[in-house]
Design a binder for these strands. Structure first.
Lengths: 193, 193
DNA sequence: TGTACATCAGTGAACGCGCGTTCACTGATGTAC
DNA sequence: TGTACATCAGTGAACGCGCGTTCACTGATGTAC
């Protein structure tokens, strides 16, 4: 059985969770040590008992955000599959939903940080590339057996690009029209049910 | 005939050009007043004779980057069309080229800033949305007459998402494979020549 | 069970640095006569 | 054409502020006996 986490571990985890949300909401530059600590109910002085540097926090937060977003997406896909949707349709409709459009801080980290990823330190870049491969793998899992890796890559790219452009246009008719267009195009091509 | 620009106007333009490149290379947070002025061959003190604030510079730089990227893409598309490619193929192969993968600071501003756009001030957001609509319009122009606005939206989203994910994977085999996958998928579907 | 002590998580003041912004000043350009 | 003056673009020192980081200290938790 797993030993129950110490107070220190609980706090550490809470800081990372807060940072993982701040990272998606505000971007890399928007994650401040004092701010994160305050949101975790602590003072900023204690930070360096948990992390050697702000960069180390970012690395943990990025990995956490990846797991977090994937877990949420996984739950939503399962719900839709339980209602009889194909795996691919469940993914496309979850990812390109109005909910995901608005919910940046709990959503897909690749969509939230896509254009900033290649500007980070080598460590963060490597971890970011891992997040991208994870998203492609998630898409691949929803494809039927004859689905190719190339198809998974293209679908993942379209999902990310659509969500970003829709967020830029805003959570209004324009943004929603963009989501709707991508949903029907993807489903028409890859899920002709 | 156009009056020739004053010294002041020439300098102003030079600052904006430098900022437009810095913006795409480093993101919004990576554009520093002192840095831009230095790259423009000036000292930072003179900045406020040209712009009321750093934000005002960002607004001009964003618009400039949009025109700049579109102009470059336009030239490349024309070159390819002159060699007999269809407009759509020319766009897809230019946008998803290895060159564009590496050339962030002179390339498409929507790809360079996509995930940061919705976090900016209302003025910058509005201008960013304009850049997105501009990209969609550019795609629309390359579609055959029966092409729909929805198709243009989806293609634009795929282009942006693919370029970002490829840049995150790196200018190596992985990144290039992603570009190649999207090129052939888009051409197979929308340009069955 | 109770007492004394060690360990540990967190506090809050202070630091150095970079950045946006301001401003008095300089040197060059242009204009009046 | 030449001189005197006004205008203007750019300089460089200085400012205030926020942020990452450090550190001496406190109060609570746990351990030894």
């Amino acid at each position: 059985m797993p030993t129950q986490p110490s107070r220190r571990e609980t706090t550490h985890e809470r800081i990372v969770e807060v940072a993982a949300r701040a990272l998606r909401r505000n971007g890399y530059a928007g994650v401040g040590v004092a701010d994160v600590m305050k949101q975790a109910g602590l003072t900023h002085g204690g930070f360096y008992a948990h992390f050697p540097s702000r960069d180390a926090l970012l690395a943990e937060a990025l990995a956490h955000a990846g797991r977090d977003g994937a877990a949420l997406m996984g739950r939503r896909i399962s719900q839709r599959q339980a209602r009889g949707q194909s795996a691919l349709r469940a993914l496309v409709e979850s990812y390109l939903s109005d909910t995901h459009l608005r919910e940046v801080e709990g959503g897909c980290v690749v969509a939230a940080l896509g254009s900033e990823m290649h500007r980070q330190t080598p460590e963060l870049q490597a971890s970011s590339a891992e997040r991208v491969r994870g998203l492609i793998a998630l898409v691949q899992q929803t494809l039927p057996a004859q689905g190719t890796p190339e198809q998974a890559m293209v679908i993942a790219s379209t999902l990310v690009g659509t969500l970003q452009l829709a967020r830029t246009l805003g959570a209004n008719a324009q943004g929603r029209a963009l989501l709707a267009a991508a949903r029907s195009a993807l489903l028409a091509q890859y899920d002709p049910a």
